[in-house]
Every structure is written in structure tokens, then in C-alpha cells.
Design a protein around this nucleic acid. Structure first.
Lengths: 117, 117
DNA sequence: TTGCTGCGTTAGCCATGACTTACCGTTAGC
DNA sequence: GCTAACGGTAAGTCATGGCTAACGCAGCAA
């Protein structure tokens, strides 16, 4: 059961995000992932536990080692959360564009593409 | 300039996520947002600063108060990051679905359609 | 100008959580 | 059976950062 809050919390940590990207690139064991990250093996194990509970990775036993691989559930949950704001963002963008168009019409020297915070 | 790392870090905090959702629902002043969150007004101001630097909100001065509103840049960056894993996730999902189909064929009592987040 | 109001900033406290070391259970190979 | 390898768990330390209190500053009204 992946929810967006867990996913965002899980990917909020840089080390954990790096581990997720490693596992996403191809299935890996804990030791394998630990080799590519500047933290200890238990730390990687703990991060993978968080990623798993967020629905971002799955694990399967393979002999004495556990292989972690990408799980799509977390990504689906995050995308669903994102879509909640998508329409609003687009409509605001459209309104802003219309405002900018009117402004440009009234004052052609102002280039709306040049505006930045 | 919004990058995915900043966005994920910004939305990783529950309070900050709540504030972002408030601002996304409609433009608000700092005090307005603070009324709907169990933290002080300065805390909200700091959170909004982080959200702004992540490209999730914009602010504009309106007399003595600042109005914060949704900014789509952060959402775009996050979606781009998400899409990096999307194809991989889909292909894995497809492989998993095929595995599940074979499993269901061997053991019909397991209904894959019943899985929900 | 003087007073009031709303925001931002700073300093400092404190809790969350990330990390390491040490230990234990499990599995494969001898 | 014994041993080695791998991974998860527990306990403890420490740093990151979220929060509050106090202060400073700008804009509006009288």
C-alpha cells in the first residue's frame, strides 16, 4: 500500500534517492548497492526497508542474498498525487500567459519569456 | 530553476507538504496559510522559502503582505524525474503481470485484479 | 510624524532520523 | 555436522533541520 506521503518522504533523503536509482537501474543485492554508496551495509539495508514500505522497491530471496528491484506502485502513487495539482498548474499557467499577452500587447517592450523570480 | 532533488526534499516534510497543498488550492498570504497549520507564522514563512527555491510556489508583493501561489516549474521537474523510471517500471510491471498470469494459470484462486494500493 | 500591522530574520533549543558497531539468524558449501 | 557469507536487528551517537521567541523593517492610516 503505497501512498504519496511515504514516497515523498522516502525520496526526500539524498542517500536513499541514490540507492533507489541504483536499484531502479538494475536489480541488486544489498552488498552490491552498498558498494556504490558511501555508507555502511546496514545503513543501506535500513534505507531499502523504507523504500520497500513506500512501494518503491520489491525484494525477493535468492539463496542467502536478497535481490531488490524497482517496484512501480510507489511511482504510480506519486504520479497520482502529482496529477492532483496538474490541472490547477496548467490553468494558472494559462491565465498567467493570457495576462502576459495582454501586458505585451499594451507594452511590447516587456518580453514575458524573460521574467524570472 | 527547479530540480527534482530540491522538489523531493521540499515535499518530503509533512508540514511543508501541507502548506504547499494549501497554497496550491488558492493563493494565500503567510498568515492565511499559518491559520490552517499547527505551527507559528515564522515557521510557515521558512517553509514557503524552501518551497519557493524548489520552484513549487511563486510569491508576489501585494501591499504589505506577500501572496504565495502555485508554481508549475517544480511539478514539471518532478514529473520529468518520475518519467526517467516510468518505462523501466512499465516493462517490469509487464513482466510481473506475465509472471502473475502464469501463476494464476497454475493456481486460479489467486486473483491479480484484487490487488489495490 | 507616530502608531499599528504584517513579514522576514536571527539565535538557540530540541526532536527526528541517519549512521555505525556489534550481534544474531539463515543459507550454501565443505 | 561445521564454517563462511549475507542480510536484518539493536543500541547508541551525532548531525540535520524544524520550531519558537525576540527583534528589525517596511507599508498603511491617522
Amino acid at each position: 500500500m503505497a501512498n504519496a506521503a511515504k514516497v515523498l518522504n522516502a525520496l526526500g533523503d539524498p542517500t536513499r534517492r541514490r540507492i533507489f536509482e541504483l536499484v531502479a537501474s538494475r536489480p541488486r543485492s544489498v552488498a552490491d548497492a552498498a558498494e556504490h554508496v558511501p555508507v555502511s551495509r546496514p545503513a543501506v539495508s535500513q534505507h531499502l526497508r523504507v523504500l520497500k514500505s513506500a512501494g518503491l522497491v520489491r525484494d525477493r530471496a535468492e539463496g542467502t542474498r536478497r535481490i531488490y528491484e524497482l517496484d512501480q506502485d510507489g511511482l504510480v502513487a506519486l504520479r497520482a498525487y502529482l496529477d492532483r495539482f496538474w490541472d490547477r498548474a496548467l490553468s494558472r499557467f494559462q491565465m498567467a500567459a493570457e495576462r502576459a499577452a495582454r501586458t505585451a500587447e499594451a507594452n511590447p517592450s516587456t518580453d514575458p519569456d524573460k521574467e524570472h523570480s
